[in-house]
Amino acid sequence: MSIEQTVVITGAAGRTGRALVPRLRRRGRALRLVDTSRAGLELDVEPRDVSWHDVSIEDADGMERVMHGASALVHLAGLSSERPWADLLRVNIDGTHTVLEAARRAGVRRVLLASSIHAVGFQPVGAAASTTPLLPRPDTYYGVSKAAMEALGSLYADRFGMSVVSARICTFLEEPGDGRAVAQWLSPDDMARLVEASVALDDGSHHLVWGVSANAPAWFSLEAGHAIGYRPLDDARAVSIERDGVVPPDPDPTAPLGAAFTDERHPVGGTW
């Protein structure tokens, strides 16, 4: 099989990575899976299709070796919830810098960064419908680390001409939950569609895009996603009606986007 595209996926054994990998495999594409543990990742490895790389995102030399000859980077690795500041700085901020620098040095021009709704957690729900990307208003140290990730993505696009998509991922689940999750759901299939749009992009710009499905409550503007070719198809409300036989209630539109993560039940620097 002739390999036309090689995509590096960091955090490939994480919850999002495990769902994405089988959806991204296709003829002519090689996947380089990067993580420090394969636990939970069930996949037949074929030499010219998928390769496994036990490399930490804190290992600059190791990451540059993985990036050599690659076409695109999907950066999912990092701490996925609130932690002490030093840990988030080391892994989410410094680690993202290490990964981006390795990609730059290896000539990788297309990048998706897994940011989070928590980068704008103190923004009101109503602001998410704006076609202008929201300024960072993080709700936790974790949210700060994702805002820093976005800033690094912007720098690497403007300074080095890389095409970078910072995806503000909302609620990534196999199936939608209830309450706020009806509005915030990102399905695995739509996440794969977002990755496909990002790794095809080559405009040397930074894009802030909501990582969300086409949910009927329509809290989030999809315009920025459409501009890069991301067109989500799944709808949490339709899935919920088919599954449960009832129309789920609309979530409270007056709450901050970060919901409970903006109050004292989730103090900064703690763990949850």
Rank of each mutant, 00 (worst) to 15 (best):
A181I: 02
A259V: 12
N215E: 12
L79Y: 04
G177C: 08
L100T: 02
A218S: 14
I93D: 01
T171P: 00
D190C: 06
T36S: 08
A192Y: 04
A30G: 01
R265D: 09
L79H: 04
P22H: 01
Q184H: 09
V195Y: 03
G78D: 09
T36F: 11
H226I: 00
I117M: 08
M149E: 15
P138A: 02
R25D: 04
M149A: 15
L155G: 06
Y156M: 12
S71I: 09
L257V: 08
L194E: 08
G270P: 00
L43G: 01
G270Q: 01
T254L: 14
H118Q: 08
D235N: 15
L20T: 11
A119I: 02
D252V: 13
L33K: 00
Y156K: 07
E42W: 02
R18F: 00
R231A: 11
I93M: 14
G245P: 08
W85Y: 05
V50K: 00
I228C: 13
S205T: 08
V21Y: 00
M67Y: 11
D139K: 00
D35W: 01
L222V: 03
R105K: 15
A148R: 02
H53L: 06
E175C: 03
L208S: 13
A192D: 07
V111L: 12
V99E: 07
G179Q: 01
R32C: 07
L113H: 04
A60R: 06
R25M: 13
P217L: 07
I241G: 03
R243I: 12
W210P: 02
G14C: 03
V268M: 04
E196L: 15
A72K: 09
A167I: 04
R27M: 07
R65L: 13
F220R: 01
